[in-house]
Design a protein around this nucleic acid. Structure first.
Lengths: 250, 250
DNA sequence: CGATCCATTGAAAGACTTCAATTAATGTGG
DNA sequence: CCACATTAATTGAAGTCTTTCAATGGATCG
């Protein structure tokens, strides 16, 4: 978890994420508070672990740029990906301060993080009720995402699960401004990751993805994903929309 | 969702749940605030729905007594139980105020609820930072429970899933003082519910439960559950402990 | 140009589901 | 307290979705 040393720090007022329509506006005062709460900014390479399972962290993070995922490893060696993390996601409220984390967080791409000291979280609650409420909302909303994953894994066919995942990740990436002119978004997710997220074996994941691809509803290559016929994918996946706009950013 | 009319209201200071070791203590002032926040108390019969999917609620609840579960229904007709609710669980923060709920909440037994007006949640954040923090913690902790369910459904065998569920529910029931002298706790969960929670078919659920039962690690009858050899069940289920003590109660 | 990671394929074995009934338990009204 | 209705638990058998094992092909990288 050694970071890549000091990097240029983004002032919160100039935070590139705040410009995105996905995020709710904050007052200048709130942004200044967030700035004072933020103690550092750092970059980790792809595959690095931000949080190790069974380890205390003592810090909170906002993913500024890059992709990551939250996961748990079983004693049998298997791994379950709990959810994917994209820019704007706030990490670390899931467990009590000074408690061993029940999950790990690993990077899919190089990632840039804002760091906040967990012991000061209390100041947020005392001084900034709006931000405190935002934090609760973030936690609650992430639960909804995990809910969605649980529904997929518990009740959907492999085909539907893959469809859901693609739609969901596409929309999330799009909502934080990752969509390029050709309509595609970056997609640094291997089939192994998808399998681990969806409770499928790698082999079956591969075959399922191929037959889904044959439907022509989407394209996946060179680490990018484009969804050409969202309606077709929606229909076959029984997709349920989560709100992706106006969420708070810390 | 029509309640059973006015019932005797439990004063928060005399709340029977607060005596349980599972819950963290609050100051008198906080308890008084909770009391002022609580507008009503009501009882619903078994099988009633507290929250309907796709419906706005505008209220928050604490389950005072009884069992319930949070679930989502798929267009295919299937149902996924997201988590079970036991006394002390706080319900309603999962979605934004005035937003259609993405999940339903249904009772397993008759249930007694405290009711809080969602529009006053803001007062909590302004006036009671400690309680506000507690609410965040509750949301975060519930995410951990859903995480655990996702791990089960995604990566464990049917046998392990059932073992996990039994241990988990037993411990939760025990932690809120439901354990009787003979070591058993109430268990108002049908095999259909278990199947819906674990992503299994009813038939397979039944057979799995039978072969597990044959191991003699637990007993299940007359709506009660007792775990005689927890170690055996733990080992076979790859059980991971979540903290069940000292959690906040609103 | 090996080394490594990721994607792909074939084939066989299993875990789990679905369909279709039957039995047991619980509850209700007379 | 019994007859009937309803819900929950069981069982058998057949089918299929998914996994596992075991290799092979492709791409990337220092």
């Amino acid at each position: 978890m050694s970071d890549s040393g000091p990097v240029a720090v983004t002032p919160c007022r100039a935070c590139p994420l705040r410009k995105k329509s996905a995020f709710a506006a904050n007052t200048e005062e709130e942004i200044d508070f967030i700035q004072s709460f933020k103690t550092d900014e750092f970059v980790l390479p792809a595959q690095a672990k931000l949080i190790r399972e069974g380890t205390k962290t003592g810090e909170l993070y906002t993913l500024l740029d890059g992709w990551a995922f939250r996961f748990r490893t079983l004693s049998s060696g298997g791994r379950q990906i709990l959810n994917f993390l994209l820019p704007g996601d706030f990490i670390g409220m899931q467990q009590k301060v000074n408690t061993d984390s029940s999950f790990g967080v690993e990077l899919l791409t190089e990632g840039r993080f804002c760091k906040f000291p967990a012991e000061r979280i209390w100041d947020v609650y005392k001084q900034q009720p709006t931000l405190a409420y935002d934090i609760t909302w973030i936690a609650a909303n992430e639960e909804l995402i995990v809910d969605e994953n649980l529904v997929s894994v518990g009740r959907r066919s492999a085909m539907q699960r893959v469809g859901m995942l693609l739609i969901h990740l596409f929309k999330r990436a799009e909502s934080v401004g990752m969509r390029a002119e050709d309509g595609s978004v970056p997609f640094p997710v291997t089939q192994q990751h998808m399998a681990d997220a969806l409770g499928l074996s790698l082999v079956h994941m591969n075959r399922t993805l191929q037959s889904l691809k044959a439907s022509g509803a989407f394209r996946m290559n060179a680490g990018r994903l484009a969804i050409d016929r969202p309606d077709a994918l929606n229909r076959m996946s029984d997709y349920f929309t989560l709100p992706l706009r106006g969420r708070p950013l810390i």
